[in-house]
Simulated scan of single mutants.
Amino acid sequence: MSVAGRCEICGTGEIEDGCDRCGQLVCSDHFDESTGLCTECLAEFGEAPERGRDGYPDGVDEHRF
């Protein structure tokens, strides 16, 4: 699926697909083809998508309480 516009997560990448769970339109960096989910939904499920430069999934921040 190719749609004109910007990724709803990073705002910079070109939209490549939509998340099957939440429906966000995301770029290839924020979409996992094997599950059909965006990186935000993968993080909620505890899945381990491809890691970015900082060791965390791209688009996902670490929160400590």
Rank of each mutant, 00 (worst) to 15 (best):
Asp61Tyr: 06
Gly52Trp: 03
Glu8Ser: 13
Asp54Glu: 13
Cys19Leu: 03
Val60His: 01
Thr35Lys: 02
Gln24Lys: 15
Arg6Gln: 12
Glu40Leu: 12
Gly59Tyr: 09
Val26Phe: 11
Thr12Trp: 09
Gln24Trp: 13
Gly55Asn: 10
Thr12Lys: 14
Glu14Ala: 15
Glu14Trp: 05
His30Trp: 06
Thr12His: 08
Val60Arg: 00
Gly18Lys: 04
Arg6Ile: 14
Ala43Leu: 08
Pro49Thr: 03
Gly23Leu: 11
Gly59Met: 04
Phe31Leu: 01
Asp17Val: 01
Leu25Asn: 08
Cys10Phe: 05
Ser28Asp: 08
Arg51Asp: 11
Gly46Leu: 06
Glu16Asn: 07
Pro57Leu: 12
Gln24Ala: 14
Glu44Ala: 05
Val60Ile: 15
Cys41His: 05
Arg51Ser: 03
Arg6Asn: 10
Gly5Asp: 10
Leu25Cys: 07
Asp29Pro: 06
Glu40Phe: 13
Asp29Gly: 07
Ala48Gln: 07
Glu33Lys: 08
Thr39Trp: 09
Asp58Ile: 15
Gly55Arg: 03
Cys27Trp: 07
Leu25Trp: 14
Arg51Ile: 12
Gly55Tyr: 05
Glu14Thr: 13
Thr39Ser: 14
Gly46Gln: 01
Phe31Cys: 01
Glu8Cys: 08
Ala48Thr: 04
Phe31Val: 01
Gly11Asn: 09
Thr35Pro: 15
Gly18Phe: 13
Pro49Trp: 11
Cys10Asp: 11
Gly46Ile: 03
Phe45Lys: 08
Asp20Gln: 12
Asp17Arg: 06
Gln24His: 10
Asp54Val: 01
Val60Ala: 09
Ile15Asn: 03
Leu42Met: 14
Thr39Arg: 08
Asp20Thr: 07
Gly23Trp: 03
Cys41Asp: 15
Leu25Gly: 02
Ser28Gly: 01
Cys41Trp: 14
Cys38Gln: 08
Glu47Trp: 08
Cys41Glu: 12
Thr39Pro: 00
Gly36Ser: 05
Gly11Thr: 14
Val26Cys: 14
Gly59Ala: 08
Glu14Met: 11
Gly59Lys: 00
Glu44Trp: 02
His30Tyr: 07
Asp20Lys: 08
Ile9Arg: 03
Pro49Ile: 02
Asp61Gly: 00
Cys22Gly: 01
Ser28Trp: 08
Glu44Gly: 01
Glu33Asn: 05
Glu47Gln: 07
Ser34Leu: 13
Asp54Asn: 13
Phe45Glu: 10
Phe45Cys: 00
Glu16Met: 07
Asp17Pro: 00
Arg53Leu: 15
